[in-house]
Structure formats: C-alpha cells, structure tokens
Nucleic acid binder design. Sequence first.
DNA 1: CCTCTTTTTTAGAATCATTCTAATATAATA
DNA 2: TATTATATTAGAATGATTCTAAAAAAGAGG
Lengths: 134, 134
Amino acid sequence: MPDQKLRNMLQKRGLKATSQRMIILDYLMSHKTHPTAEMIHADLQTISLATVYNTLEKLVDSGLVVVIDSHDDKRHFDYYGEPHYHIINQKTHEIIDANNFDVQPLLDAARKASGLNISGYHIELYGVDPKDAK
Amino acid sequence: MPDQKLRNMLQKRGLKATSQRMIILDYLMSHKTHPTAEMIHADLQTISLATVYNTLEKLVDSGLVVVIDSHDDKRHFDYYGEPHYHIINQKTHEIIDANNFDVQPLLDAARKASGLNISGYHIELYGVDPKDAK
DNA sequence: CCTCTTTTTTAGAATCATTCTAATATAATA
DNA sequence: TATTATATTAGAATGATTCTAAAAAAGAGG
C-alpha cells in the first residue's frame, strides 16, 4: 500500500500520520490473520507493544479496524474495509470472515428497540465442524 | 424459583446440582442487571469468587447463560431464557435487551458461508443516545 | 443412610493481557 | 525552523481471570 494512501486514510479521520500508524494499518490491511496486539508486535519488532495497543485503539475508534472477541482471552483485530462478520470455530478458535448477509433489518430493529442511533455492531457466530460433532 | 426446578435445569444438562450453582442460577434468572462475576460475588457473599467464575463457565457451556462483551474490560453475564441480543450504549455502557428480530436467516447464511454447524452467536450492537450525539 | 469415588468448593497465589507513567521524540503548522 | 500538541517508548502497575492443592459435598450403589 503506498505511503500517501495510508497517510490520507489516517488524516481523513483526524489521526496524525506517524510512521508507526502507517505500518500497523498497512499490516492489518495486508493480513487476513486476525492478529492480536502481541502478534503484530512480534512481526513489527521496531514498534513497541504500547504503541501497538495505542494505535489499535485509535484505529478502532476511527472505524478502520474492528475488535473480535474470540473467547481465547485475547482481543483480535481485523481491518474493516468491507462490512462483514465473523464465524468462530469453537474447537480451533479459527476466525472465518463472512459477508453474505444484510444487516440493515437488524440495525433498524435495534434502533426501534433502544431509541439509540446505532453506531456499530459485532456479529459473531460460533460453530463446530460437522466432522467434530459427536 | 423453587429448588427442584433449579435442580432439574442443572441435572438435565449434566451438571451436579450444588447449592452454589442453584443460588447463582437463581440469581441470574431473577436479575436483569447483566452482572459481572465480581458483582455476583459481592451480592452472594457466602460464595467464593473462584466458584462464581467456575459456575459461570459451566452455565455458559451448558447454554443457560451468555457472556456479553460490553467493552468495559469485564465480562457480563445474562440468563438466556429467551433468545435475544444486546444493544450497548457506547457512552454509559448500559446494556439493553432486545428480542424483536429473527436471527434464523443470519444463521443459515453463516452455515452456508462456513460449512460449520452454528452452535451459538453473539449479536451486540453499539449505539449513542441521539441527545448525546454531537 | 453408609461407604466410595468423583466432582466441586475454596482461599490465596499466580498469570498475563492490557493500561499507565513520565520522559523523549515527532508531526503539523505557521 | 520554532512552537506546541500529540505520539512513542520501556518498564512498572493493574486487575480480571485462572490456577493450585487441600477440604467438602454430590451422586451412585449397596
């Protein structure tokens, strides 16, 4: 991903375009591995763990990145270029991306039920491989 | 909730009906507060915190209870008598129950996308009160 | 209602992902 | 290029959750 594009993505959202932020954003955009902060830090050794956490928080707040709670006690992160949701294998904790459904009816129902403006969502489904089922 | 009913709910799911489990299950069924383990422990002072955690894990595994990740860094728990989902106020962290929508199309789409048997789900929506919006 | 065996409970210690601190460095702007 | 606000960093601190190992209770079968 070219530098200038990363810079624009950050600045458009009111974030200073530091080299660490560009590197982390580029990393997330080019990896479909749903990494944890620790995994990002391990791969990008020149960036401190604190900065990885700080940057992820900013990227999540800006909407560029989402958190996935995979129930293995660590937060996973995913670049959110296209709206999608996650299906988590309960045995292996593998995280699968899916995007073939329309969330709008759900958002409308939520708005009606709560009176809140819906600003985001997490949809996570848990599944077991049929060949693992007892 | 009568003792015998709580006992049956646990035993039907292969869990020994200890007094601690019955008390915690009864607590969750009668409170709509989405408590944390610490809150439950504070209210039920005779039950150790370790047992509260152990019991919640069993109840979640059995499907009687669900975990809510409200992004305040503590897990909240909710008795899952009727399928429903949660809307979380991003400012106050208040958790609102909602049940007025049909998740089946979503589960079918997830099964098709992943090839997994869908065994559970978390649907959490985040919203802001219109009067808090800038 | 007595074993017996397995599972559960418990207090306290341990873990470890995440957050905080406060000193240094860098980005944005004029 | 100076200024000022914001970001980065290493290391310490936090705190929710998990672990440990010993004592207690549940459930099954006589």
